[in-house]
Design a protein around this nucleic acid. Sequence first.
DNA 1: GCGACAG
DNA 2: ATCTTGTCGC
Length: 231
Amino acid sequence: MWGKEWHWTGSPSEAIKLQKEIAKSVELKPLEKDFRYIAGFDCSFIKRDNEELIIAGGIIWDVKEKQAVASASVVEPVKFPYVPGLLAFREMPALTKLTRELPRPDIIMADGHGIAHPRRAGIATHLGIWFQIPSIGVAKTKLIGHYQEPAQTKGSYTILFINDRPVGIVLRSRDKVKPIFISPGHLIDIDSALLVVMKCLGKYRLPEPTRLAHHLVSHKRKELKQVQRGK
DNA sequence: GCGACAG
DNA sequence: ATCTTGTCGC
């Protein structure tokens, strides 16, 4: 069910074990059902005294009407350190809490990778498995894999490989901008993930769900900075 | 031992 | 992610 919070505690080595298990449950298949609502998630961080806070934000994008129909954000202390490959353990607690305030989407779009990950279990995969909703990872840079640089024109793309295995797409989302990295998280395949992302592209490098979520958290962050000054 | 390394 | 001003290119 949507709104189910994630409460996991453990060490980095235990986290790696969990990811290996999660990867066994991943299902990659074409998106058969029609879709309309896509959730976009993103996080920001800020320091308060001795602790670090995470600001998680999410929006629901209506692909048909091309507009956000809901949004929410939460702020809480972060417990897990940032370790490449273990991003999900840092952001999942806040992101899942966020879902209590949002309607259930048809697809989840996360800021990060899906199976284009050392253990095929990026944050998009964690979210897809946890909620059993098709999920896609959209990252601004590569974590792992090899690819040929796509042409400079919008819409050009190449395949991202890990040991000769296709795991995602490197897409030029606008003319002459750095490409974005798309990979399925769960319950969707590479082709469908690419189609969904392209349907969400507007006049910016990032697809609307992720871009608006990022805009939301950066705005929330500025508000918190103001509060810090006033005390 | 030397690079690579989501956010 | 965050710290930060001006500046190069379309």
